[in-house]
Nucleic acid binder design. Sequence first.
RNA 1: GCGGGUAUGGCGGAAUUGGCAGACGCGCUAGAUUCAGGUUCUAGUGGGGGCAACUUCGUGGAGGUUCAAGUCCUCUUACCCGCACCA
Length: 801
Amino acid sequence: MKYDFAAIEQKWQEKWEKAGVFHAADHSDKPKFYGLVEFPYPSGAGMHVGHIKAYSGLEVVSRKRRMQGYNVLFPIGFDAYGLPTENYAIKTGIHPREVTDRNIARFTQQLKRVGFSFDWDRVVDTTEEKYYKWTQWIFLQMFEKGLVFRDTALVNYCPSCKVVLSNEDSQGGKCDICKSDIVQRSKDVWYLRITAYADRLLDGLETVEYPGNIKMQQVNWIGRSTGAFVNFGISGSDEKLRIYTTRPDTLFGVTFMVIAPEHPLIEKNRDRITNMDALEAYRAECAKKTEFERTQMNKDKTGVRIEGLCGIHPITGKQIPIYISDYVMMGYGTGAIMAVPAHDERDYAFAKKFGIDIIEVIRGGNVEKEAYTGEGEMVNSDFLNGISGKKESIARMIAELEKLGVGEEGVQYKMKDWAFNRQRYWGEPIPIVHCPTCGMVPVPYSELPLRLPAMENFAPGEGGESPLAKVESFVHCKCPRCGGAAKRETDTMPQWAGSSWYFLRYIDPLNEDALADPEKLRYWLPVDWYNGGMEHVTRHLIYSRFWHKFLFDLGVVPTDEPYAKRSAQGLILGPDGQKMSKSRGNVIDPLSVVDEFGADTLRVYILFMGDYGAAAPWSESSMRGCKRFLDRIVGLADTAKGNGVTSKNLESAFHRTIKKVSADIEEMKFNTAIAAMMELLNEIDKAGSVTVDEVKTLVSLLCPFAPHVCEEIWEKLGGQGLCSLAAWPVYDEAKTVSDTVEIAVQICGKLRAVVEMPTAASREEIAALAKADARVVAALEGKTIVKEIVVPGKIVNLVVK
RNA sequence: GCGGGUAUGGCGGAAUUGGCAGACGCGCUAGAUUCAGGUUCUAGUGGGGGCAACUUCGUGGAGGUUCAAGUCCUCUUACCCGCACCA
């Protein structure tokens, strides 16, 4: 039966808003549930079906929790600083503030039309002064604790966006925002010392409930390796060349050393090196390549030997040639390696190309043919000879190095410190003053927020200078320490800043004295369940864990980890099975679906499409099936008569469905939860009649998925109050089992009959009933049973000869 | 190259973790209702064989374990995702 979804949806959205049913209470005797979804970037394109899927999962969980009597915090906000808005503003001349406000208003309206149960009184916007005041406050706290520093570095620069990008934003050598090629530039940039938290970010993973693949990605991203630092000598000098290796056990197999082209050793020894021309030519060649190109050419090794300098082996004292090559990176370890060609594939390729000796120190392979990286007995290795455990030889070698004072155990991370700046307008100003006498001075806390100045032209300056540098009144200031003339920092923070702590602000969005009240933080934290996209697993998720741990150390937040549990939704693909994109023209607009089929249908379909965590293509006809389901539910309500239960069988089906839907929601198996309700509806149709009580139960189960139509039916059936606040149905385990059960009877593993028998039958009774079935009797004709397998409730298998 | 994942009808996907493969939905076929249908209802729908009861094959491929395998083991193929000269 078709229903007027447009009228119903508007009616109930208004009622919910008026009654404030989705407001979280700050203090409550109820158990709390904090469900968090990744807040959107309010782009000009408006909402995407992907947003709906991303929010629908915890929307259902949150609605279920409310019905279960929890005090639920399910907030939403806007991560509104960022380049697309700024670029749009530059193009159109409309101020980013105005663009942002407009986009937020549009998103808000769209989200409300889908009927999400967000607490709209707690909306945060990262670009508001009252919000970014605290982003700046956290930055200054980090500055005070020595976690903020400046360094000259080769940075990824996007010539199109005119902005310095982090490694994370320039993966694959392309700008994450505009997809143009990245070039390398030398620049003074801000860093956050996230590596200081590397171990804790790793160890903390043990204490949280994240899916295995997310943990794995974070572990790989942090990339901890243990090994040793070893100091090699330099011929004719008391200088040391320090290297990092994970295989100190192979130290006797070293036949050459390699340093990165940018390694300072070369500059320091200019006068002693006899082939500077060749080295500089090679360096110039490398500088032309982006980091991406450098890492792409991973097989063909190039390099130049440094003439006039030699390494000295720390134990044998042997002279060792040193090369420069771009297969060694300045950014990892010490920018220098000891090369053991016999047992490392890269060193092997290099040695073959340059005709360098290969010394086997671990037996087990054929070093004439290829590098051997496995384990084996140590040879040619002095005091290590005869040992065959890698662990033991490494430990012995490290002990020896420490005894001789030429090395020690060490740990390295792939993760680099976080380049924390943008030369753009639409971001949080970095609250630092550069004073000619005092150096870098933080803006006093009392002067926060340091406001983003009004500007007419926010196009970036040539050469990557921030547009803020053009605002004289902003730049020129007095040094907060000495009172002398000084200049403000003009860089702004990167887009990941505001999103690194937004979940804390939801807890107390209007607080003017603290980022949030400690009492409230203690009540709500940690976030019980956080859902978001896989694309944020290595950036946002690590950054925000880092900030949270820092705030924990400050005593600002009560938990070491911000998120107790994390899940991720899969993409919605276009009807053609391809990723949705404007250029492919396969984008589905959620609001046009709401117009045509209603918000409830959209919500049910998106969760019914398939595994919540997997990608699935859009199918309009499949969605129509969900509409049909809701229409049938509406029709069912009209035929409901009387109270109590219709029949024992149907009662049992209800209890089974309550059990399944309850459990499936907890595991985000929304597709099978909906399928179970469809099955129940089919059962009811078969039974031919249904009571008002039963329909109310079904509608309560469906309410988190399709809340508008459920409220309407609930009201029509005389339900108390709102369906959204009704008690979540409970099931009786005893009633989930029906009296009889169908048992499959196999003979030699082949299905021969299906026999209905009492659920309570004993093994013997089951076997007897099975053997009494006419078809089984026929099949057993002339055979002898050699084995009987009886699995109560499931199957009987008779093995015959 | 390393790490992780996936593979089931015409399609999206189920399968209580070793126990009737294909739930649920779409699509399709036939019939009914309707002036009409992108409506609604009824029945059917994995492949082959048979009028039928029934029978046989069947979860990317090849082996294996088991009374019993989509599920466990070995090998293999294809695709997807992440990292990528990390010393």
